[in-house]
Design a protein around this nucleic acid. Sequence first.
DNA 1: CGGTTATATAAGGTAATGCTTATATATAAA
DNA 2: TTTATATATAAGCATTACCTTATATAACCG
Lengths: 104, 104
Amino acid sequence: MDLQLMEKQLKAVSDSNRLKLLASLKNGEVCVCDLVDILQVSQPAVSQQLRKLKEANIILERKKGTWKHYRLNDSQTPYIQAIIDELAPIPLKNCLCSINEGEA
Amino acid sequence: MDLQLMEKQLKAVSDSNRLKLLASLKNGEVCVCDLVDILQVSQPAVSQQLRKLKEANIILERKKGTWKHYRLNDSQTPYIQAIIDELAPIPLKNCLCSINEGEA
DNA sequence: CGGTTATATAAGGTAATGCTTATATATAAA
DNA sequence: TTTATATATAAGCATTACCTTATATAACCG
């Protein structure tokens, strides 16, 4: 049990905007452009919050051309997983970045 | 799923001193005097942090003469319970307040 | 190459957090 | 009632957090 890590992860999720980001990722990978819409804050604000979640190892990023896709890390600490489980997924309107994908 | 409540509770636990307080309560009720020893901060600081945990409904208090005993709420939201489960209990030296108790 | 788009970083301001010391409250004890 | 003890509240300060606007980076497109 690493108290430092635990504190860092909990700080990362103890903000309603970042919880909404996690809720938006529950249905899969999302690009930043979608998330700006949801949070109703500026693009840099979203970028900074995503970084905080990434630094806490809660989300992962994947570069796709000009876009960056973010997704939940699939191996979470149990307490972070419990938090994610509690969140109701937030639906997104598909933005351009999700078109022209591998259609997997 | 109440995002407001969730944020409040997560803010309450996203601090290493308050996590230590929770870890100290895992073995049962404790009075404030013990907790000051553990955190190595002033008594008012401990009092303020306990209040934050109490306002988030994570801990409960019981008055016993001049002392006040704090304990974990036994019905936690699942994500707070998961956090508590992760914490290694912190042992306390018994202070005066635990003597002269019901010896239950 | 130059322009456009998606995202990140930098800088700065305001608000929130967590500590401290000083003081208030409440109970107990003399 | 006076004094002592346990805890809470108030006020002030330093640090952190989160937003904004401005700018940088990187990929794509003509």
